[in-house]
Amino acid sequence: MATRLFSIFLGCGALLGALSAAPALAQSNDTLASPDVVSDSDINHNNIEFGAFVGQVSIEDFSSGAVYGLTLSYHITENLYLEAQGGVAEAGETSFEVLSGGAPLLTEDERDYQYYDLAVGYNLNGEIFFTDGTTFNTDFYVQIGGGSTDFAGDNRFTLSLGTGYRVLLTDRIALRLDVRDRIFSTELTGEQKDTHNLQYTLAASVFF
């Protein structure tokens, strides 16, 4: 598991370097091909995005519950960005606890589910047309990252995989739909296994 994750992060680092170089090369070629001067007012300098989200998380072997948290992103280029995210939720009961009516598997404090991670993301830019005169810029994006999950009285290294859709209502305000799968190893049910913890959220964010 550790070797596989290390290989993934090495691949992300290589991808980060390649994608960072590509836009610069493309811009250089465009500059040579076109003498047009772009005014400063046409350039969006807002590359920091701060957001808040709320949604639902399904913690494997436990019931689903509400999740909420914050995101902070730095957009390196139009397509490439880094994002930090932190969230909290509370795990419900396992099916065994519900059916048996016996002693709970976890205490109330151990049911607290908290996480943070740092991810590399890539945007695919587009547009959405509501009417003939109303058009919004959009992004479909994918992410891969890693972090930590505090659950059941222990901190666990977590691999984060995600995708989402962003609609930019203005130059500064956006709405986002996100799907994340946070994967960490646990022995709570008596055997060592990797758990998949799916999260669906709606977020509002602001660029500055």
Rank of each mutant, 00 (worst) to 15 (best):
Y68R: 10
Y68K: 08
G69E: 02
G69V: 01
L70G: 11
L70P: 07
T71Q: 15
L72A: 12
L72Y: 06
L72S: 10
S73H: 03
T77P: 14
E78Q: 15
N79D: 14
Y81M: 05
L82H: 04
E90H: 02
E90G: 01
G92Q: 09
G92C: 10
E93V: 03
T94P: 10
S95V: 13
S95F: 11
S95T: 13
S95C: 11
F96R: 13
E97H: 08
E97K: 10
V98S: 15
L99H: 14
S100N: 14
G101N: 10
G101Q: 08
G102H: 08
A103T: 14
A103L: 13
A103V: 11
P104N: 08
P104C: 03
P104S: 07
L106E: 04
T107D: 09
T107P: 10
T107W: 12
T107R: 06
E108P: 01
E108G: 00
D109M: 00
R111P: 00
Q114G: 05
Y115G: 00
Y116I: 00
Y116A: 02
A119N: 11
V120M: 14
G121E: 04
G121T: 04
G121S: 09
Y122Q: 09
Y122V: 05
L124C: 14
N125M: 06
N125Y: 06
N125P: 15
N125R: 14
G126I: 04
E127A: 11
E127F: 08
E127C: 01
F129D: 13
F130S: 03
T131R: 09
D132G: 13
D132M: 01
T135H: 12
T135G: 07
T135I: 15
N137Y: 07
T138R: 03
T138C: 06
D139S: 14
F140M: 09
F140C: 09
V142P: 04
Q143S: 14
Q143I: 08
I144Q: 07
G145M: 01
G147C: 01
S148H: 02
A152H: 06
A152N: 08
G153S: 14
D154L: 04
D154A: 07
R156Y: 05
R156C: 02
R156G: 03
R156Q: 15
F157Y: 12
F157V: 07
T158D: 04
T158G: 03
S160P: 02
S160F: 00
S160K: 01
S160M: 03
L161T: 12
G162A: 09
G164A: 09
Y165V: 00
Y165K: 01
R166A: 02
V167I: 15
V167W: 06
L168V: 01
L169S: 09
T170Q: 05
D171H: 06
D171M: 03
R172Q: 11
A174K: 02
L175Y: 02
L177W: 04
L177A: 04
L177G: 11
R180F: 10
D181I: 07
R182V: 01
I183S: 13
T186G: 05
